[in-house]
Amino acid sequence: MFLPVSPTAGPLERLWHVVFSGLCLAIFAFLILPLVIVVPLSFNAEAYFTFTREMLSLSPEAFSLRWYRELFTNPQWAAAFRNSLFVAVGATLIATTLGTVAALGLAKLKPALRASVMILLLSPMIIPIVIVAAALYFFFTAIGLAQTLTGLILAHAMLGAPFVVTTVLATLSGFDWNLVRAAASLGAGPVHTFRKVTLPAIAPGVISGGLFAFITSLDEVVVVMFLASVDQRTVPRQMWSGIREQLSPTILAAATLLIVASFLLLLFAEMIRRRNEAARASTYKD
């Protein structure tokens, strides 16, 4: 992972090179270690948040699946996983559909108009989440959507849609609109053209935008705190109470599962991005 040193470098430069490499290594460790550390801790046989002496000496009795058993047999956690998945899938479907369609429209607007519409569409990303959650609490209570899964899905769809708009718009910037013209000249209607020509071309953008929306919903806790009752608790909400009330290693087990899930999603997103780049490179070669 290190930069090459030029063969003409003096001793000072070589020394700096070593220091710089060590520095980078430390920063990467800062980024990744906190995620790695929970994995072994979640197999702790004791109710501690740290490594016991027995764990450090690697004695097998110090490790157990106790907290995972707890996680899977506890009805609260089971309900939380169900709610999280339901809300995330619902929100992702809405955000991806509306976001993709909107991006197609935005790509055809005049730049000045597009810029102002974009500010409107992206504003949920900068406004502090507490303000959004408080606002949703009042409005959704007034119209009867508070404490419903529908309300959560709509709120999360709104939070995720800007990601879909930006990723799809980025993919569309490399899209050859002559393909659409060609399809139209061959007699395809707009819907048919979209399904057979546009969508396959922009699919990588749609999928990675959708993944972002999914992750956003899966990770969101503040809106859930304001809008959900006990019946709509999601996994992050459950972890929130776990951290606040009784710090049990069950949340380490839940955290480990979520890390594995996000790692898989990240690999999936990377794969799509590379495939897209490869596809684009081969198009331009032809």
Binding site: P34, L35, I37, V38, I215, L218, D219, V221, V235, P236, M239, W240, I243, I251, L252, A255, L258, I259, S262, F263, L265, L266, A269
Partner: peptide, 11 residues
């Protein structure tokens, strides 16, 4: 990509 609550838990 990792949940913010997971990161807080590990910290």
């Amino acid at each position: 990509w990792t949940s913010i609550l997971v990161r807080i838990t590990s910290w």
